[in-house]
Amino acid sequence: MQTQELARGFVDPVFAAQGVFRAAMWALSRPGRPQELATDLIPPAPLSPEAAALALALCDYETPVFLDAALAAERAVGDFLRFHTGAPIVAEPGQARFAFISNPLNMLEFSEFSQGIPEFPDASVTLILQVASFVDHGFTLEGPGIKGRLGFGAAPLPEHFAARMAANRTLFPRGIDLLLAGAGQVAGLPRSVAVKEG
């Protein structure tokens, strides 16, 4: 039997989790404005440090987690998340409260995930997409949390991103919420935001 070393979690779980949560909270409060998310985690690839920090801060035994194909293929990723969060890892995306997507380019349709029900729209998934970079153009955002309009872009993003987000917006108050994590930052695109090309 082969043993392997498990990557460590937060050195200071209380304050690290609080800091990561605050970044995610401001990210969703200010859609499209990336917030600083500093972390010294070294999770197993292809899980990014920022996505791992969000997982450790927000997931536990109450939150089934879904991993995309690239993450699920790497056993160490599942072991890391299971050990540090205690979250059950599910194969069925519709059962997940958090879904980690390492390769947004060919991710599942949003409709594969839980979008809540009219009486409980909060019973929906939060997607955590690993991105490489953020820019301030490509899409125009409007909605709660944004004064006027805001230019936003990130790479990589799923195909037909604006159309997906528009479809998600029409479901409101049902829908999925996105946290984009990467490059020491996290940006939020809650279901309340209207995303247009250009």
């Binding site: 909270m25 969703l28 927000l58 729209p121 939060t126 949390g145 409101f172």
Partner: peptide, 9 residues
Amino acid sequence: RAILKAIAI
């Protein structure tokens, strides 16, 4: 987690 969903809706 409840706060994050509350902000989103």
